[in-house]
Amino acid sequence: MKQCKLWFGGAFGLGLIILANLALAEDKPALITIGYLNLVNAQLISKHMGWHEKALGVPIKWVKFDSGGAVNTAIAGGSIDFGGVGNPPSAVGVSKGLPYEGIFVLNMLGAVESLVARTDKNIKSVKDLVGKKVAVPFGSTTHYLLMAELKKEAVDPRSVTIIDMGPVDALAAWLRNDIDAAYIWEPSLDKIVKSGGTIILTSAQMAKAGYPTWDVAVVRKDFAKKYPTLVNKFVKTEAKAVEFWLKDPQQSAEIIAEELALPKEDITRMITGTTMVAAKQQLGPTYLGTSNKKGGFVDTLYSTAQFLAEQKRIPAVPDKALYDAFINPAYLEAAVMQKQ
């Protein structure tokens, strides 16, 4: 009799423990795929330190992307959960109804992306590009800025030969003397400068002129719906990386140099050309804003979309509300509040 009772008690207790675990545990995915951009930003620090793996408690697959356009395609195909996209590809993605949200500012682009021209051709501004050959990766932040600048300076784009090339191809073409200018980013940018190039325009200048360019972290809507706490943790981890960057630029440079397999001097220079925005600041009116009042990023996206529509890159400008919906500071808000 006694043995029976013991068995019963044990089984009951075990059952309770199992039930409790089931109730408490949020169902987790088996694997999370994070698409990251081939750029200098704080995300590389979080990657290097393995912070996401620890915080999310799920194995992470990191996939490198060379462009926001490729990230868009990966999101459409459902092959990544998180990604990083610049404002032009985001504008395109939203107009196409891609099911994602912008949740964190990865970086603001400054001198790390610049327009460089041949010193010996005496090109001082885009006005001097008439009849010349300019290489730029189509669909990217620099493509957007080049077209914007041409428009600003009232230069007919048809009078300039604009060629679609990635930064590495542009470098090769430059060395062959096939092109006169290129609007690209580091580290190819510096190599061009060192081969007889002069920078005539930077993305920092364009930002001041009212054409900011940046990259945001994005998450697929269906993933976010299923695992909202994981998204919070993601954002929190990224915020931690930004903090690290702001506090210790030396260490950050070392880590990033290792991640990108580039010399430290290149990285140090690239760091000065890129700006990180601290978590709390991101909730301010210039950036993401708050869930109640979205910030300037929505306006940037909308004007980017307008520009792209003019360029016939997107068929029509979608409703601004869609861009408003795209920018979602809720996860960042949760992360910031948790800290306090």
Partner: peptide, 8 residues
């Protein structure tokens, strides 16, 4: 085809 892919 390649270019259009960049813009979905």
């Amino acid at each position: 085809v390649l270019d259009a892919g960049k813009f979905l």
